[in-house]
Computed example of a mutant assay.
Amino acid sequence: MDTVCALCERPAHPGSSLRLCLTHLLEAHDEVDAEFGVTDLLPSPCAFCGSRLGVRYPSGWLCAVCEWRVGEPPPDDARTARVDVVYYLRFRDRIKIGTTANPAQRISALPHDEVLAFERGDRLLEHRRHEQFAHLRIPGTEWFETDAALLDHVGLVAAGAPDPWMLLARWRSEAAAVHG
């Protein structure tokens, strides 16, 4: 039985898991790109961390590593106080595992009910966590179904630091002291 697009009378695109014609699939794709960005090479290296990997939004580019907005100069002391973290956010019954050097900016742009924990680490640690919990991953996202193993891990990461923001402040202070 042929299916028709849920939004119009045209045939649904073959092979799509959504009942949408090609036109509506492409419109949905454009909406997702506008909201979540498209990962690509930056036009020039990031002024903050030097990375070439970026995320392009309709409003401009962000570095994919440190999320610095392309075109803005970093503050004079930014490199000395940079701390990469893997963050754990809860939104409804799901948990996001991501990484950033600017949690306040990144997390404010994400739907979430609670900041569960910060773990000091960069994209490599984030990748390890994604592999560790791959069986729970919602395909194509950094969101994971919640289960006991993931909750136990988050509990271990958060142990002794009920406020992740205070922990981040301590890490930034330590980084500034080291670079003095």
Rank of each mutant, 00 (worst) to 15 (best):
V86A: 05
V115Q: 03
F91E: 08
N102S: 11
P164V: 14
G15F: 00
T141H: 02
H24V: 01
R52P: 07
H13W: 09
R56T: 06
L18A: 07
T100Y: 03
S51P: 04
C63V: 00
A161M: 13
T3W: 09
H179S: 11
P11S: 12
L110A: 10
R120N: 10
C63P: 06
R94D: 05
E174R: 12
E119D: 15
E145I: 07
D152S: 14
A148H: 06
I95R: 05
K96I: 01
A28R: 08
W68V: 01
T141R: 02
A176I: 02
C5I: 05
E145F: 14
F133M: 04
G140C: 04
G140L: 00
E72A: 12
H130A: 15
R82Y: 01
A101I: 13
E9W: 10
L89S: 06
P139D: 10
A34I: 09
D113Q: 06
G71L: 12
A34E: 05
D147S: 05
G160R: 08
P14Y: 00
I95L: 09
R92I: 03
H135C: 12
D77Q: 11
T23Q: 06
R52E: 11
G71I: 14
R90D: 08
L26V: 08
L53I: 11
F91N: 13
C49A: 07
V178D: 08
F133N: 10
R52Y: 10
R52T: 15
R128E: 13
A134V: 13
L125R: 13
E9G: 14
K96R: 03
V178K: 12
D122E: 12
S108D: 15
F91W: 09
H29V: 12
V83E: 03
D77K: 12
P111S: 09
D2V: 14
D113M: 02
H24E: 00
R137F: 07
L125C: 11
T141F: 02
L7G: 11
D76P: 12
W68Q: 08
L62A: 13
D113S: 10
A159R: 15
Q132E: 11
L116K: 04
L18Y: 04
S108Y: 12
R56W: 01
R92W: 07
S51M: 00
P162Y: 00
R129M: 15
E67L: 07
C46M: 00
L53K: 14
V157L: 00
P103Y: 07
P73D: 08
P73N: 02
D147E: 02
A117V: 15
R19Q: 14
S59I: 10
A6Q: 13
G160Y: 03
T141M: 04
D84F: 04
I138R: 08
A134S: 15
R90I: 02
W61N: 13
D93P: 05
A78G: 07
T39C: 06
H153Q: 07
D84W: 07
